[in-house]
């Protein structure tokens, strides 16, 4: 097919819109770049930590904690004992975490779809899910420990119960925020239901869903560690409690540090990138040329 038109196209106006010369990021001074700000925050934290150690001997030094971590990782000995206890508790916790999220996120997603897409489900489920959301994760941790006792069930249940409302509320609000005009457009063009579900509902609510996933990951990790602290004899939380009970402050701090490092790395390396990808369409530079320039 070909069609001759004497109206100009965008290519006749030089640079293609949306590909501005020079990224805005290039204009930002290096001292204001995220990596520098983050590094500065960590450095300040370390300085404060070392200062606290110098004024209060019960606070372990950075050196003591790092050395303890090395031993837990199996790379040396502490007090004449080489333990290498890091990977065992971590793998147990990660297994519980993965199972809990593998159940909680789809269940929460399904609830979100139902609440967001159906007025009837919304009237029945919306308040219930909101109640679940406002309960702090520590409540789920204690409740799961009481229901299921010591073992692996309680931590998994706590992760599920924490993840579900975050996922459901975020996804449902994303669906409810969709422009009804887009549904009308889909009706007018007779767009099939499956394509409408994948392109319109999921596509439109994707950024909300990813936010739900991110929050579910972060808050569930808290629940898991609390349940392991109080209601299990294995896992990362249990290991931190072990050193707490033994009055080994450096061991306790080392494991707490591991909690933080794990969730921070997960957030930086996976969740934020996922969120960035899902909101890519909102981050593009808006063009400001007048219509007359190209039409």
């Amino acid at each position: 097919m070909s069609y001759a038109t004497d109206l100009p196209t965008t290519s006749e106006f030089g640079q293609v819109p949306g590909t501005p010369q020079g990224s805005p990021a290039e204009a930002v001074h290096w001292t204001r770049k995220p990596w520098f700000v983050n590094a500065l925050a960590v450095a300040i934290l370390l300085v404060v930590w070392q200062y606290l150690h110098s004024v209060n001997g019960r606070v372990p030094s950075i050196d003591e904690v790092v050395s303890f971590l090395g031993v837990e990782l199996g790379g040396g000995s502490h007090g004449g004992v080489s333990r290498g206890e890091f990977w065992g508790p971590l793998s147990i916790s990660l297994q519980r975490y993965a199972i809990g999220l593998a159940i909680g996120i789809p269940v929460g997603g399904l609830l979100g779809l139902l609440i967001g897409g159906s007025r009837r489900f919304r009237s029945v489920l919306n308040d219930t899910v909101l109640v679940l959301l406002v309960l702090p994760s520590v409540v789920w941790a204690f409740a799961a420990s009481l229901w299921f006792g010591i073992g692996s069930t309680a931590p998994v249940v706590a992760v599920v119960l924490t993840a579900v409302p975050f996922m459901a509320v975020n996804l449902s609000s994303g669906i409810r925020g969709l422009d009804p005009g887009l549904a009308l457009m889909s009706d007018a063009f007779r767009v099939p239901r499956l394509r409408r579900a994948t392109h319109l509902l999921v596509g439109g609510a994707l950024s909300n869903a990813v936010t739900g996933v991110r929050l579910a990951f972060m808050t569930s990790w808290n629940s898991l560690l609390i349940v392991e602290w109080f209601g299990t004899a294995s896992g990362v939380g249990w290991r931190a409690k072990h050193w707490y009970d033994a009055q080994r402050f450096e061991g306790f701090v080392a494991w707490i540090l591991l909690f933080v490092v794990f969730i921070t790395l997960l957030d930086w390396l996976v969740l934020r990138r996922l969120e960035h990808r899902s909101t890519r369409w909102q981050q593009q530079p808006t063009l400001t040329f007048a219509e007359g320039e190209i039409a």
Partner: peptide, 19 residues
């Protein structure tokens, strides 16, 4: 191409003017 937009097929709607 008939509406003169061959070069913007890869852009998102918000990157375009209303026209």
């Amino acid at each position: 191409s008939m509406v003169g937009l061959s070069d913007v097929a890869h852009l998102y709607p918000a990157q375009l003017s209303a026209g």
